[in-house]
Write a protein that binds this DNA or RNA. Sequence first.
RNA 1: GGCCCUAUCGUCUAGAGGCCUAGGACAUCACCCUCUCAAGGUGGAGGCACGGGUUCGAAUCCCGUUAGGGCUACCA
Length: 482
Amino acid sequence: MTTRVRFAPSPTGLFHVGSARSALFNWLFARQQGGVFLLRIEDTDADRNREEWVDVIINSMQWLGMDIDEGPFRQSENAEHHKAAVEALYAAGVLYSCACTGDEVQARKGDNKTPGYDGHCRDLNVARSATTALRFKVPEGMTTVHDVIRGTIEFQNAVIDDFVVAKSSGAVLYNMANVVDDRADRITHVIRGEDHISNTPKQQLIWEALSKATGPDLPLPVYAHLPLLVDASRKKLSKRKDPVSVELFRDQGFLADAFVNFLSLLGWSPKGEEKVSRAELISQFTLAEVNQSPAFFDVAKLTNLNGAYVRELSLDDFIVATLPWIDPKNASWSPADFETPWPDDRFDAERYRAIAPVVQERVALLSEVPAMVDFLFLENPPLDEAAWAKAVTGDADAGAILDAAIACYGEATFDAEVLHEKTLSFTEQLGMKLRKVQAPIRVALTGKSVGPPLFESLVVVGREEVLRRLQAAREVAGSTAP
RNA sequence: GGCCCUAUCGUCUAGAGGCCUAGGACAUCACCCUCUCAAGGUGGAGGCACGGGUUCGAAUCCCGUUAGGGCUACCA
């Protein structure tokens, strides 16, 4: 039997990292088993769904490279099947009509310890109407869930209340719709978050009732409940409270491969190195090895991993990957709320390509690139006041250093090696250290005290412009001379 | 409250009774390298929640306690 798994999100908010991790583990498992990965949008709650969230889910999955074999399907499109299944179960006597309102249930419950519905209408044979819901008649006994990750979990049926399967409006609810679809889609493995554990016995009950009432007699799927992803206060990640939307990470310049690799490390670990390729992930992944305790999403670790992936890119790939941040016109997509610090017409692809190799080694996030190369495309790069004050206007030696640099760079060949040597020699003549001498030159050139290696930067900017900037700085430089 | 899940460095994890003086990664600290910043290298600090069993032997198995979390909707 071929493995068939599904990722079944509800489009009720941003696509967050917890959902992405669930999708990933399903996808990895499907790919490894040579199975089928399908996407089912569970949009039966019309009040909470929004079409734009569907697009976000699909776009995010595409970005992460999780290709879907079947779908995306809309659960809402199967409404007739859901209703037919409900009727079949009602006819089979598994369901009963209930006229209780929520308030009535609450009022009767008082401080009763038993949770949920009290079974008030269970044997009342209430006539079905537009104000009655349909409840599942939970049988006596015990329901046992076999979970690949957690082992056997037993539920006394007495603590499972007679849950609603179809609203008075006729709308079919999650537990029912989900099972009907899983059966129709011939799902073999249900891989989802731990927050669904308590739904599982209900779904098993429905599954078995359906097998009996309508057939076919399908075996229960294998269940695997993934540990939750939690926030800093160890609570389940929330779409509302936590800024963890997948698109946000893409917009900050994380690479999809790094992101996927990091996600795979939450609740699971590969043999050996943590940095593993997608192919290796697919071949190594095992559901049974997924651990059982909740994990916190550590952005610092993701960032570090991302840096490693960035450095590993070929020069061409690096340039293409950074296009959205440096040359938006030629990029295939654009990060939200982002503008290059320079006007389009001042961007120069040749210069960017020349500096890119040394920039690539220095960024962890692609979004860090613009600030590192802005001095190439801006006539007057923004000045870091503190750096300027310390290295140029406030340094008594700055004048002498800039004088020497101007004299030297006016004649030297503009080659990084050569400039390095020549600078070293005037540094010695001044009786200083290169560490000190590079500071005012760097600030004069780039406006900042940190950036790409100085000599490469000088070469890319070019003699004429270098001299202009150094002279401008010289005008205001600190000096010991009168 | 009830049911259920979980518990190894700050974080993610390795660990399937002796290989554990508990390993790795990120973060952190120190040093080295160095034109700034990164990267890299070396080293340091840092953990089995607690209490009982079982066993010759427990991070690992059992029980309890504590703590955290999930669910407890005519949401998914």
